[in-house]
Design a protein around this nucleic acid. Structure first.
Lengths: 135, 135
DNA sequence: CACTCAACCGACTTATTAAGTAGGAATTAG
DNA sequence: CTAATTCCTACTTAATAAGTCGGTTGAGTG
């Protein structure tokens, strides 16, 4: 479950947008409250906007806001934009073959979980699980 | 679910040991069948031995073998040796707080799964799950 | 219009980690 | 003694991540 700083920042930024009252939020504010290097954040927000996840407005009282309701944006959506498609699982020779199935299963679970949790869940602090059962 | 080449190699190497008949397996053979750079493998096997996961013997007919029965070595054991303790989850400011809980939950599931699967499972190709249910 | 605020943009630099290599010394069997 | 094989530290190179720079463009305000 390795997660890059860039991805973390992206998630924290959109979480902030999800929690903010309607209207543009300037990058400066996000950078301050989430303690993210300003220039780096610019960069990330740009990527999110190009992907259509957020929208923006320039000038005084400009800023960023979510392109869709927070309930309709999942963590997986954000991660996909930042990290791109995950590398395909390979096959292993000899006795190691079944290892691939383990990675596949773990990744599937992870994907499913991240696709269920929305920005609304994060912003409201009510996650859609109470614990985790095992297969 | 990022997994380094080093860790993959380590797992594949011990899987090979688990599948081999009793007795020492030379690094050269593991490197060949698993297609792992020889010198790099040496390095990794050394680390595994120091951690007490495998044992070794030098000289002609020397090689490596598992220090315990394959049924008693989990994937988590191997990964822990190679990657060390995972970084502690931080807390996030503002609206992003609950994100930490998501990572924690995902990591917990991953840990539990990797602690259930042993080298015997891998070597025999019979994994202890049939699919994965969700919380 | 002039001014200011804030997003926009690509390229660039630096830091960190991962991956792999080198050159031998030590041990064991025959 | 010789050959096989592990053992060990340190080094080099490659890749990726993290963060920076210098400016441009557009929107609102007096």
């Amino acid at each position: 479950m390795r997660i890059s700083a860039r991805t973390q920042y992206a998630l924290r930024a959109v979480a902030e947008l999800a929690a903010a009252p309607p209207g543009p939020v300037p990058a400066e504010r996000i950078a301050t409250v989430q303690d993210i290097p300003r220039r780096f954040l610019d960069n990330i927000l740009l990527q999110l906007r190009r992907a259509g996840l957020i929208e923006s407005q320039r000038g005084p009282d400009g800023g960023y806001w979510l392109a869709r309701p927070a309930m309709e944006i999942t963590l997986a959506d954000v991660i996909l934009v930042i990290e791109g498609v995950p590398p395909r699982g390979e096959r292993f020779p000899g006795a190691a073959g079944p290892l691939a199935d383990v990675w596949t299963a773990l990744r599937a679970f992870e994907d499913r979980t991240l696709s269920e949790i929305t920005l609304a869940h994060i912003a409201s602090g009510t996650l859609p699980f109470d614990g985790m059962r095992h297969p």
